[in-house]
Amino acid sequence: MKASGHELTGLVFNIQKFAIQDGPGIRTTVFMKGCPLRCPWCSNPEGMGSAPEIMPSERKCIACKQCLEACASDAISFRAGIREIDWALCSGCLACAEVCPSRALEAVGEYKTVDETLRIVERDRDFYETSGGGVTVSGGEALLQWEFVRDLLKKCQQAGLHTALDTTGYCAWESMQQVLRHTDLVLFDVKHTDPDRHRVKTGVPNDQILRNLEGAASMTKVWLRVPIVRGFNDSEPNMHSTAELAVRVGAEKVSLLPCHHWARDKYRRLGRCYESEAAVGGAEPNGQMLSRWQEILCSHGLAFGVGN
């Protein structure tokens, strides 16, 4: 987040129209860039870093080599017609993306003002109206840029749009509280109820997250979102404690989000290591595991959904 002139801007890495699994109805999801967590299963690794960055695509590359000339750090080379990037040398200046004619090198992350973002979001108003949808702000962790998000959601609400916040819950309560004043629904991630397990896999403890959840639930409607990661949070005790937590905070619904490996390619393109399969040991969760989750949620009298 930075100020351009006097106007607040946010670093956005994607604005997804026709989002149908980020809350009720047909929605537009604004993905904010930057996240303090490092969950190995994350499906949007391009949303982790807090600065714009390059995400190359081999498929689109036509080997015109314009990037080679544009790169001042000598990070780009061509071997047998294939472009290679030495990430250690890349300065993140984005000059290569500016010259690439085929969008094989694209910058992920763009600073947008609140009004710019609002104008994009408002374009699908007709669809929100017929479907009971609206806008969802997601990430990354959107609350890293809480002032921007607060202003955006406030203006969305003023414009009569339903607002949702999709969050890891890892932030200062004061900033979350300000955003929640303009939020109709929180999609609150609960990755694990055990503090140690949580810290080991995500890199952060969960005490702040759980406190924020209680606070959020006292202010607005909450859906719990649980990424189902095999070998991590699929133990019976965790399933029960997650369900108990949902009951305690009065969550309207629990969304089970089974982990998948579709983002593997993105990690490779970003020059990062995809640890999920190795670290978590997890193949995508099977139907049996999902059924067990559902049984347990049911036994606690909870409504649940898969994917949303």
């Binding site: 994607n14 026709f18 999801t29 490996h261 983002a263 593997r264």
Partner: peptide, 19 residues
Amino acid sequence: LIVRVAGYSAHFVDLGDHS
């Protein structure tokens, strides 16, 4: 081509072979 079969935000051509 949009394949948000799994709600995952991607265009088909941007996915890896496996996906």
